[in-house]
Nucleic acid binder design. Structure first.
Lengths: 232, 232
DNA sequence: GACTGACGGTATACACCGTAGACTCGTCGG
DNA sequence: CCGACGAGTCTACGGTGTATACCGTCAGTC
């Protein structure tokens, strides 16, 4: 039997990942990827219809690296675990990450992860009408944070606050001045990520019906607000 | 006096915005932009050192469209206003948005917006040590939501849930099945954005010291959309 | 054993891209 | 009048994605 056509797809994706790891995302071209495995650029078109489709496949491969949560742990642990896994994958392949918001990313693996999120939110006792929105919010926060961390939105702008304050006319930025001490302090991104996820999960917990377990810590008057009514 | 070189920068940025509005972000090239105002591609290099710098300037121009909040309104109104402004700008120029997370975006206008956020959080009574993180979280949620909405992460994948459930082996996605009714319902993205911002601001309020006003006070459910109308 | 597809891959070509370098002007101060 | 200068052009180079045509090699089948 001849070697199946599908059999070289992983090889090509590996090559693409190598290129992106070594020389950045914009160094990925059909020529550079093909050359790495001794092929002609046009050979890749037997496996992917376009460069776009190849990049989508690269992203899919990345997402397959996220490990499923250990069975039998509570909903909160599941959500925490998945958040950390996403961040870990992102940190392993920082240059590829921008694809995740540029491309629609509808792949089986995304479906599976989403399903785990749905199950966890169901187990948490969140009313079903709220679940899709909360799942999207959680995903947005996790992906948004990781992407900002990796692609520089949190980077130079935030890390050199002294220079930033000096830039415009003096006294133009009273907020920055009042917070100078805090802004100069280096940031522990791990801790910040943990705090954000934790806070989001508190929010989820507050949305759960029946308050199955009254929040362990005495949280001062967190009156659950009536939801904005959605219609349509 | 000779016409200053700086004088044509806005013209070039307008041309770039037209190109991106009509033919998408990847249709922006030095050639296409220059042609639109009757110039040679190389002429642009007198105003921008590279295409990258031009795109950064385009993004900066967009951010300048966001209107400052009307003076004298409360911290919560300020934050709501700014969130909605960002979303409005994004919806006016959806194709340009991916730049905002791809590029570091350190510009004076970003500084000014951040400063307004800092001031609002200070006014809310949030302890200073918490403010930088909360500002980043708020920004991440707003930008992440808008970007997901615009660039398709919320799009095809979520909008055709029936087809998605049919894709993998039956029974592989118990979460999706349990939520089928909810997932089939069309989504009101305006309402979802409002709800997310509102929830984040509740979170901010809960972080504020002294609980200056105990939240029992009836807050108008629907924040009236900022009245300030833009002109350009 | 010869014939026939199909398949993996190649070669060539095209239109386009960002941009470096040298060039041409029209205008200005002296 | 002259030199300087700055805005803009021309040409060219190396790179890109990919459409089209082509080729050798194998699996089966007669």
């Amino acid at each position: 039997m001849r070697k199946l056509k599908e059999s070289r797809r992983p090889e090509i994706l590996d090559a693409a990942l190598q290129v992106v790891a070594e020389r950045g995302l914009e160094a990925v071209s059909m020529r550079s990827v093909a050359q790495r495995i001794g092929l002609t650029p046009m050979a890749l078109y037997g496996y992917f219809r376009s460069k776009e489709e190849l990049l989508d496949a690269v992203l899919g491969r990345l997402l397959e690296e996220i490990q499923p949560p250990p069975p039998g742990c509570g909903w909160r642990s599941v959500l925490v675990h998945l958040s950390y896994e996403v961040r870990a994958v992102a940190q392993r392949h920082p240059s590829v990450l921008p694809l995740i918001l540029t491309r629609p990313a509808v792949s089986p693996v995304v479906l599976r992860v989403n399903d785990l999120l749905y199950q966890a939110l169901l187990a948490a006792g969140v009313p079903p009408a709220e679940i899709p929105r909360l799942e999207r919010l959680l995903g947005t926060v996790v992906i948004g944070h990781v992407l900002s961390e990796v692609s520089g939105r949190f980077g130079a702008g935030t890390l050199d606050p002294a220079g930033r304050r000096a830039q415009p006319g003096a006294g133009e930025l009273p907020g920055h001045e009042a917070l100078a001490a805090e802004l100069d302090r280096p940031v522990d991104w791990d801790a910040e990520f943990r705090a954000n996820v934790d806070e989001l999960l508190d929010l989820v917990e507050r949305r759960s019906v029946a308050e199955r377990r009254p929040l362990a810590e005495p949280r001062p008057l967190a009156e659950p607000r009536p939801l904005v009514e959605r219609r349509t």
